[in-house]
Design a binder for these strands. Structure first.
Lengths: 160, 160
DNA sequence: CAATTATATTAAGCATTCTTAACTATTAAG
DNA sequence: CTTAATAGTTAAGAATGCTTAATATAATTG
């Protein structure tokens, strides 16, 4: 069973390599497309969480609900999100992504893919299959740990 | 060989699940420990790139060298980095992480690990071994694609 | 050596994003 | 029904981080 830390170590090393590239790409994408990292982050949160309230977003991002409200103002002005009244409780606003907001998520994902393709080139067919299998497992298990509703991001990269 | 997009898709899905958690953790860690995301990002860059100049950092982070210099000012004031003259070219400053700066990187990594441990619990022994193998492969290949010198982050998580 | 180029710093100004506090509207509780 | 609690917005001010421009120092070029 090797050392008990083997899995954590392997994950950490992978994350370390991956994050460095991914963060740079995200950062670059945000710059080039004129969105801030906060905005990307907020859109990502909403996309994962699904319909949610202003305070939810604030808590998720670790800021006050005032800050969340202001951020949503800008996003709404850019037509990336919509705020509608919750029919069951008219105090709360339901935040949803618009078509455009969803597209931004798609694009930011796509911005990362050039590196993925390069990476794939370096794999043998066996390594490739092994990786696919492992990644699927990790994804499934990872989703089980998530407490949020997961909207289906799966399709984002295939139908574009 | 299934669809040509299978690998990219599997990677994207995993990244999607992982990033959501990881970003939240990073964000939370940064907040709690009083550092900004930019600072964490800069420290990460320096850690990966190894000794580098001010302009290098600016280019790596996509900002002007003035911005990089100002950021380094703060980091130096917090004793997270040191600036020394390059003996071969006294115009350039060599940026290095201090003990404290390295520790911050360690801690930010550690902050992510609780999720990793939960994830590991959900895996069968076979899945666990498969994942380790795949992650190692991806890490190795990923490093080959990197253009930066990689300092050894491997040891960070074991000797702590 | 003189002029140019490269590196880093500093200063001033601007845009973004955060916080707290005040305010409105709605719901829940007594 | 009255009071208290909850959700969201708005406003004012502070903090952060960015840019451009000016400056100092060192290296390179002719």
């Amino acid at each position: 069973m090797s050392q008990p830390e083997t899995f954590i170590l392997a994950l950490n090393q992978w994350i370390t390599v991956f994050m460095h590239r991914s963060m740079q790409n995200m950062h670059r994408y945000a710059k080039e497309s004129g969105y801030s990292m906060s905005q990307i982050f907020a859109l990502n949160f909403i996309h994962h969480r699904g319909r949610c309230g202003v305070t939810d977003l604030g808590e998720g991002m670790g800021v006050s609900n005032a800050a969340a409200s202001q951020m949503l103002d800008k996003l709404a002005h850019q037509e990336m999100i919509e705020r509608t009244e919750d029919p069951t409780d008219r105090r709360v606003k339901q935040i949803t992504l618009t078509e455009k907001g969803t597209q931004v998520i798609k694009d930011s994902l796509f911005a990362r893919q050039s590196w993925f393709r390069e990476l794939e080139q370096l794999l043998s067919e066996e390594e490739r299959q092994l990786s696919i299998s492992a990644l699927k497992t990790l994804t499934d298990k990872g989703k089980q740990l998530g407490l949020y509703e997961t909207t289906n991001i799966t399709q984002l990269n295939s139908n574009n």
